[in-house]
Each structure stands twice: as structure tokens, then as C-alpha cells.
Measured scan of single mutants.
Amino acid sequence: EWSVQQVSHWLMSLNLEQYVSEFSAQNITGEQLLQLDGNKLKALGMTASQDRAVVKKKLKEMK
């Protein structure tokens, strides 16, 4: 059960800090993070497919 802050730290740990402000603005918590798919990541401004791939891979490892 991650807070928005913990999601931000997680993104930073993946060197994806450029997305922290948008994820925070949308109040993405750990629970919501686990529901994100490629389209939702795109909607959050994650347009680079490599970045989405990293996030999806890491989320899969956490589930």
C-alpha cells in the first residue's frame, strides 16, 4: 500500500524522475500504480516506449 510519495521515490529509483510531477498531480498511489497499463502510462505522459517497458517489467516483478 504505497503512498503517492513512495510511488515518486520508486520512479526516481528507476531514473524516471521526469514523470514524478505528473504521477503526483494525478495522485497515483501504489494500488493505482499496479493497475496501470501501457495506455494509462501514455496518458500520464510516459510517451517513450522504453520507459513504459521498464515500468511494466518492474510492476510485474512486484505483483
Results as ranks from 00 to 15, higher is better:
Gly30Tyr: 06
Val4Pro: 09
Lys42His: 06
Trp2Glu: 07
Trp2Thr: 02
Lys40Asp: 11
Phe23Gln: 07
Asn27Met: 08
Tyr19Trp: 02
Gln35Thr: 13
Glu1Ala: 10
Gln18Lys: 15
Arg52Glu: 04
Val20Gly: 05
Tyr19Thr: 07
Gln26Trp: 01
Gln6Ile: 00
Glu17Arg: 08
Ser24Pro: 04
Asn27His: 11
Leu11Trp: 00
Arg52Ala: 07
Lys42Tyr: 05
Asn27Glu: 12
Leu11Gln: 02
Phe23Arg: 06
Leu36Arg: 02
Glu61His: 03
Ile28Met: 05
Lys58Tyr: 09
Glu31Gly: 08
Thr47Tyr: 10
Ser21Thr: 14
Lys40Ala: 13
Lys63Val: 11
Arg52Gln: 13
Glu1Asn: 15
Asp51Cys: 00
Ser21Val: 09
Glu1Ser: 14
Ser8Pro: 00
Ser13Arg: 10
Asn27Arg: 10
Met62Asp: 05
Leu14Asp: 00
Lys58Phe: 08
Leu14Thr: 03
Val7Trp: 00
Leu36Tyr: 08
Leu34Phe: 06
Lys56Cys: 14
Glu22Ser: 14
Met12Trp: 04
Met46Thr: 03
Lys57Thr: 13
Ala48Asp: 15
Lys58Gly: 12
Val55Met: 11
Leu14Met: 11
Ser21Tyr: 05
Met12Tyr: 04
Gln6Thr: 04
Gly38Cys: 13
Leu33Val: 03
Ala53Pro: 03
Gln5Phe: 05
Lys42Trp: 04
Gln6Arg: 06
Lys40Pro: 03
Asn15Leu: 04
Ala43Ser: 13
Phe23Ser: 07
Ser21Ala: 14
Gln35Phe: 03
Met46Val: 14
Glu61Asp: 08
Glu17Asn: 14
Glu17Met: 07
Lys56Asp: 11
Met62Ile: 13
Trp2Ile: 00
Lys40Gln: 12
Gln26Pro: 01
Gln18Cys: 10
Trp10Asp: 04
Ser21Asn: 14
Met62His: 02
Asn15His: 12
Leu41Trp: 02
Val55Pro: 02
Ser49Gly: 12
Trp10Gln: 06
Leu16Ala: 06
Asn27Ala: 09
Glu61Val: 06
Lys60Gln: 13
Ser8Thr: 14
Tyr19Cys: 03
Val20Thr: 10
Lys40Arg: 13
Leu41Thr: 04
Lys58Ser: 14
Glu17Val: 06
Leu36Asp: 08
Val55Asp: 03
Ala53Asn: 11
Ala48Phe: 09
Leu41Val: 01
Gln50Ile: 09
Val20Asn: 10
Asp37Thr: 11
Tyr19Glu: 12
Val55Ile: 13
Ala25Gln: 13
Glu22Phe: 01
Asn15Gly: 15
Ile28Lys: 04
Leu36Phe: 02
Gln5Tyr: 09
Gly30His: 06
Leu33Thr: 04
Ser49Arg: 14
Val7Lys: 01
Asn39Gly: 11
His9Glu: 15
Tyr19Ala: 07
Val20Pro: 10
Ser8His: 06
Gly30Ser: 03
Gln32Val: 09
Leu41Asp: 06
Asn27Ser: 12
Glu17Tyr: 07
Leu14Pro: 00
Val20Gln: 11
Trp10Val: 00
Ala43Phe: 01
Ser3Gln: 11
Lys60Pro: 03
Gly45Arg: 02
Glu61Met: 07
Gln18Tyr: 06
Ile28Glu: 05
Glu22Leu: 09
Glu22Trp: 00
Gly45Leu: 03
Ser24Trp: 07
Ser8Tyr: 05
Leu34Pro: 05
Gln18Ser: 12
Thr47Cys: 11
Lys42Gln: 12
Val4Ser: 10
Gln6Asp: 07
Leu16Cys: 03
Tyr19Lys: 10
Asn27Lys: 14
Ser21Leu: 10
Asp51Asn: 01
Leu41Met: 12
Ser49His: 15
Ala43Pro: 03
Leu16Lys: 02
Trp2Val: 01
Met46Arg: 00
Thr47Ala: 09
Thr47Met: 12
Met46Asn: 02
Leu44His: 06
Val7Ser: 03
Leu33Ser: 06
Leu41Phe: 02
Thr29Cys: 04
Leu41Ser: 06
Leu59Ser: 06
Arg52Thr: 06
Gln26Lys: 12
Ala48Pro: 09
Glu17Thr: 14
Lys57Ser: 12
Gln32Thr: 10
Asp37Gln: 01
Asp51Ala: 04
Leu33Gly: 05
Val4Gln: 07
Tyr19Leu: 05
Val4Asp: 02
Thr47Pro: 03
Leu36Lys: 05
His9Arg: 12
Trp2Leu: 04
Thr29Trp: 02
Lys58His: 13
Val55Glu: 02
Glu1Phe: 15
Ser24Arg: 15
Asn39Asp: 14
Met12Leu: 08
Asn39Met: 11
Gln26Tyr: 00
Asp51Ile: 00
Leu59Phe: 03
Val7Pro: 01
Glu61Lys: 09
His9Phe: 10
Thr29Leu: 00
Gly38Arg: 10
Gln5Thr: 12
Glu22Arg: 11
Leu16Asp: 00
Val54Cys: 05
Leu14Phe: 06
Lys56Trp: 12
Glu1Gly: 14
Arg52Val: 14
Gln5Trp: 07
Ser24Ile: 15
Gln6Ser: 06
Leu33Asn: 06
Leu36Glu: 06
Glu22Gln: 12
Ala25Leu: 08
Leu59Gln: 04
Asn15Trp: 00
Thr29Tyr: 01
Gln32Tyr: 06
Asn39Cys: 13
Trp10Ile: 11
Trp2Tyr: 07
Gln35Val: 08
Ala48Gly: 11
Gln50Asp: 09
Met12Ala: 14
Asn27Val: 02
Asp37Ala: 00
Met46Ile: 10
Met12Gln: 15
Gln6Cys: 02
Lys56Gln: 13
Ser13Gly: 12
Leu11Glu: 01
Gln35Cys: 12
Lys63Gly: 10
Gly30Thr: 01
Leu16Ser: 02
Glu17Asp: 15
Leu44Gln: 04
Ala53Phe: 08
Gln32Pro: 08
Ser13Lys: 10
Ala48His: 14
His9Ala: 14
Lys60Trp: 09
Ser8Lys: 10
Leu44Arg: 03
Lys56Thr: 15
Lys58Arg: 10
Lys60Arg: 13
Leu11Cys: 04
Leu34Glu: 08
Trp10Met: 06
Lys42Phe: 06
Met12Thr: 14
Ala43Glu: 14
Ser3Ile: 03
Val54Met: 14
Ser21Met: 09
Trp2Cys: 00
Thr47Ser: 12
Val54Ser: 08
Gly30Cys: 00
Met62Asn: 01
Thr29Gln: 08
Thr47Arg: 10
Leu11Phe: 03
Val4Lys: 11
Ala48Thr: 12
Leu44Trp: 02
Val20Phe: 05
Phe23Trp: 07
Arg52Cys: 05
Val4Ala: 12
Ser3Cys: 03
Thr29Phe: 01
Ser24Ala: 15
Glu1Ile: 09
Glu31Gln: 14
Thr29Arg: 07
Val54His: 10
Glu31Ser: 12
Ser3Glu: 08
Ser3Asn: 15
Met12Asn: 13
Leu59Asn: 04
Gln35His: 11
Leu16Trp: 02
Tyr19Val: 06
Lys60Asp: 14
Asn39Val: 12
Trp10Glu: 04
Asn15Tyr: 01
Ser49Ile: 07
Met12Ser: 13
Lys40Met: 08
Glu1Leu: 10
Ala53Ile: 10
Ser24Gln: 15
Lys57Asp: 15
Leu59His: 07
Ala43Leu: 10
Val7Phe: 01
Ser13Ala: 12
Lys63Ile: 05
Glu17Phe: 03
Gln6His: 04
Gln26Ala: 12
Met62Gly: 04
Ala43Met: 10
Gln26Cys: 05
Asn39Glu: 15
Ser49Tyr: 10
Asn27Asp: 09
Glu1Cys: 10
Leu36Met: 15
Val4Ile: 10
Leu16Met: 14
Ser24Leu: 13
Trp2Ala: 02
Ala25Trp: 00
Trp10Phe: 12
Gly45His: 00
Val55Tyr: 00
Lys40Cys: 04
Leu14Gln: 07
Gly38Val: 10
Val4Met: 10
Ala53Met: 13
Ser13Thr: 10
Thr47Ile: 11
Lys40Phe: 05
Met12Val: 09
Asn15Glu: 09
Asn15Asp: 09
Val54Ile: 13
Gly38Met: 08
Gln18Met: 09
Ser3Val: 01
Met62Leu: 15
Met46Phe: 04
Ala25Tyr: 06
Val55Trp: 01
Ala43His: 11
Leu59Val: 11
Gly30Phe: 10
Ser49Ala: 15
Met46Ala: 01
Trp2His: 03
Ser49Asp: 13
Lys63Phe: 01
Asp51Tyr: 03
Ala25Gly: 08
Leu59Arg: 04
Ser13Val: 05
Val54Pro: 01
Ala43Gln: 14
Leu34Asn: 06
Trp10Ser: 04
Phe23Lys: 04
Gln26Asp: 00
Lys63Thr: 11
Lys57Leu: 08
Lys63Asn: 11
Gln5Leu: 12
Lys57Ala: 13
Leu16Tyr: 01
Asp37Lys: 06
Gly45Ala: 01
Leu41Ile: 05
Leu34Val: 10
Leu33Tyr: 01
Ser49Met: 09
Phe23Asp: 06
Val4Tyr: 10
Asn15Ala: 05
Leu34Tyr: 08
Trp10His: 00
Thr47Phe: 12
Glu22His: 09
Ala53Gly: 09
Val20Ser: 12
Asn39His: 13
Gly38His: 09
Gln26Val: 03
Trp10Ala: 03
Asn15Gln: 10
Met62Val: 09
Ser49Trp: 14
